[in-house]
Simulated scan of single mutants.
Amino acid sequence: MLVVFAVLLGERQGRFGNLQNDLAEGKISSVTVRGEGLLRNETGSVLQTVVWEGGWGITRQDDVRVTTDEDGSGSTSSGPVLSGERDLADYLRRTYPDLTVNTEWDRSSESSILGFRHLPSGLGLALLVVNLVVLLRIVIDRHAWRATRWAWFWAWMFVSPVAVPLFLLLSGPTPFVPAPRNPDRRLTGGWALLLCLFVPGIVSATWAARSW
Rank of each mutant, 00 (worst) to 15 (best):
E110P: 00
L132W: 14
S109P: 08
F153Y: 13
S112I: 14
L125M: 14
G79P: 05
L127M: 11
T76H: 11
P97V: 04
H143L: 09
Y91L: 01
W145I: 00
V101T: 02
A151M: 08
L114W: 12
L125P: 06
V64H: 10
F116I: 04
E85A: 03
R137Y: 13
H143G: 10
L136E: 12
D69A: 12
V81S: 02
V162P: 14
W152Q: 07
N131I: 06
L123F: 07
V134M: 08
W154E: 04
D106T: 08
A163N: 03
L132Q: 15
S112D: 15
P97F: 03
S78P: 11
E70C: 02
D63E: 15
L127A: 14
V139C: 03
P120C: 04
S77R: 00
D71L: 09
V162T: 15
V66R: 00
W145D: 14
D106Q: 04
G115N: 01
L88T: 00
V133H: 10
T148N: 09
R149H: 06
V162A: 15
S73Y: 04
D106L: 05
N102A: 01
E104Y: 01
L99F: 04
P97L: 05
V66W: 03
I113R: 02
P161C: 12
Y96W: 09
T67W: 00
A144F: 08
R86N: 08
L82V: 03
R65H: 13
E85R: 06
A151N: 01
A155G: 15
R65Y: 08
N102Q: 09
S111R: 07
R94N: 09
N102T: 01
S83P: 11
T76Y: 06
T67M: 01
T100D: 15
R117T: 11
A89M: 11
D63Q: 10
L123R: 07
T148G: 14
F153Q: 07
V101F: 02
V101M: 04
H118S: 08
W152H: 01
R142T: 11
V159Q: 15
R94P: 05
S108V: 10
R107F: 07
T76C: 04
D63N: 13
D63M: 13
V133Q: 10
I140R: 14
L132R: 14
S112M: 13
S109L: 07
T76S: 14
T103R: 12
V129M: 10
E85P: 01
L119I: 06
D98I: 02
I138R: 10
N102E: 11
R146H: 07
L127V: 09
D90L: 09
E85M: 04
S77Q: 02
L99I: 00
G115D: 03
R142F: 05
S121I: 10
W150H: 07
I138Y: 09
F116E: 05
S121H: 10
A89Q: 09
D69M: 08
S111V: 06
D87N: 13
R142D: 11
G72T: 01
I140M: 12
V101C: 00
